[in-house]
Design a protein around this nucleic acid. Structure first.
Lengths: 76, 76
DNA sequence: CGAGAATGTAGTAGAAGTACTACATTCTCT
DNA sequence: AGAGAATGTAGTACTTCTACTACATTCTCG
């Protein structure tokens, strides 16, 4: 039962940094399609990868991943 | 490549609360042996389960899980 | 328009995580 | 000593995650 939904903010953080999936994937040491799968929510990362992502973006895991939907930032 | 080591403090937190693996497993909605595997480090949990564990213990994920070894609390 | 980069979709294959069962071992506690 | 709880070990089966390849689509910029 690890198939439950985990929401993530990877696209937002990546956009903030202005880096491509390919570059992020390279920095994380994973395949670039893996980042695509994560961003599209096709599955959630392993804990190992989640920790690496949080480490890369220099934020706590909870800032990127959550069991509950994130509040929208822009509501215009 | 999610086979890398993730250190965890589940045994310590569980001991602090004085609950058994069985009870923790029940609270998390997983098999009690799964908790055993995690505590023994046979594998690390999915992100989903890690978030549930952090939620259960009411601490950030980083308090329980880390890519790097935790400092020992008692060094006597 | 044309080229290259970024992203989306689809498929196979293998590694890792979880469930479950059964039994052994250790630990309390009376 | 004996009972019951907690924990460790072993094994099978299934799901999820990751790698990888290939190709389609969209975007950007000359």
């Amino acid at each position: 039962m690890s198939n439950e939904i985990v929401y993530n903010r990877i696209p937002m953080l990546r956009a903030e940094r202005g880096i491509s999936r390919k570059d992020l994937a390279a920095a994380l040491g994973v395949h670039y399609q893996t980042v695509g799968y994560l961003e599209r929510g096709e599955y959630s990362p392993s804990l190992f990868l989640a920790l690496k992502i949080a480490e890369y973006f220099e934020v706590p895991v909870e800032v990127i991943f959550s069991l509950h939907p994130f509040a929208r930032l822009g509501s215009s």
